[in-house]
């Protein structure tokens, strides 16, 4: 028989403390979920009762001819495609503008490249603000400033996306291998050269990958910016639904979905090659 001796199986105090903290955290999460039901009128019975209405809205009411989304009405297909192309252009320019803004902001918002703690904090907070303002809110502001059309939509995408990309770029910059940067510094290179030849090659793939990812999101966002008058296909879908032309709305939705699927697929393929 193997020799045995008494060992203490009680976890040490720090492990017990950690376990208690974890249990408290889970309790708090459950409390937040529970409290979220208050005042939000979530009711499964209402959903169940409304299923019939949704069915009739989408697939048609036998008592009302021409109701429902099917078959889709591609009568103005040319206009919808043109507007979809405009929407994609909005996403392209919105993303490119955002990258141009986000790159310098990213360098200023990364601990290892910010000139000092003050600039780092100010830039981080500015990015928080840009990210916190939803595209819709920004679009409403820019519609008031420059009028209706795609331009305010593009501006909304530029500023909101700059907030997101700036933070993502900064995180990519903070993750670089400092040894490679140090080697460039050790040659006596000047600060811009260190950024260009020591930092930039390390973050290029990250920057391109994140930018493509945001482009996909911006195409989806741009399809609904028209709801607030900021141009693109969103305007046409709003008009179709408001005018009870649900079959035209269906045709527009099909065009949007097909475009989003296609661009997501192409973008994902591109990102695969980049990383």
């Amino acid at each position: 028989m193997l020799p045995t001796r008494t060992v203490n199986v009680q976890p040490p105090p720090e492990v017990r403390r950690r376990t208690t903290l974890q249990m408290i955290s889970w309790a708090l999460i459950l409390l937040v979920i529970g409290l979220s039901f208050q005042g939000t009128e979530v009711n499964l019975k209402t959903l169940y009762d409304g299923l019939g209405n949704s069915w009739r809205y989408i697939f048609g009411d036998p008592t009302r001819p021409q109701s429902g989304f099917f078959p889709p009405d591609f009568g103005k297909g040319g206009v919808y495609l043109e507007q979809m192309l405009l929407t994609v252009k909005m996403a392209v320019l919105g993303t490119v503008g955002a990258i141009i803004l986000a790159l310098p902001l990213g360098f200023l918002a990364a601990r290892n490249t910010a000139p000092n703690a003050f600039v780092y904090q100010i830039t981080r907070r500015l990015l928080d603000v840009l990210r916190g303002l939803n595209e819709f809110v920004l679009a409403l502001i820019f519609v008031a400033a420059v009028g209706l059309g795609p331009f305010p939509g593009i501006l909304a995408l530029v500023f909101h996306t700059a907030g997101i990309l700036g933070k993502l770029f900064a995180e990519g910059i903070e993750d670089i291998d400092e040894g490679q940067v140090e080697a460039v510094k050790a040659t006596g290179a000047r600060p811009l050269q260190v950024l260009g030849r020591g930092v930039w090659p390390q973050i290029t793939a990250h920057v391109l990958s994140m930018s493509m990812y945001r482009f996909e999101s911006n195409v989806r966002a741009a399809t609904v910016l028209g709801l607030v008058g900021a141009g693109g296909i969103g305007f046409y879908i709003t008009e179709a639904i408001r005018g009870f032309d649900t079959r035209a709305a269906c045709a527009i939705l099909i065009i949007i979905l097909a475009t989003v699927f296609l661009l997501d697929f192409l973008s994902a393929k591109l990102r695969e090659r980049l990383t």
């Binding site: 080697a183 460039v184 040659t187 006596g188 000047r190 811009l192 050269q193 030849r197």
Partner: peptide, 13 residues
């Protein structure tokens, strides 16, 4: 990279 110190800053970058 070893030549950066002799190059104009922007071209080197």
């Amino acid at each position: 990279l070893g030549c950066l110190g002799r190059q104009p800053q922007l071209l080197g970058a």
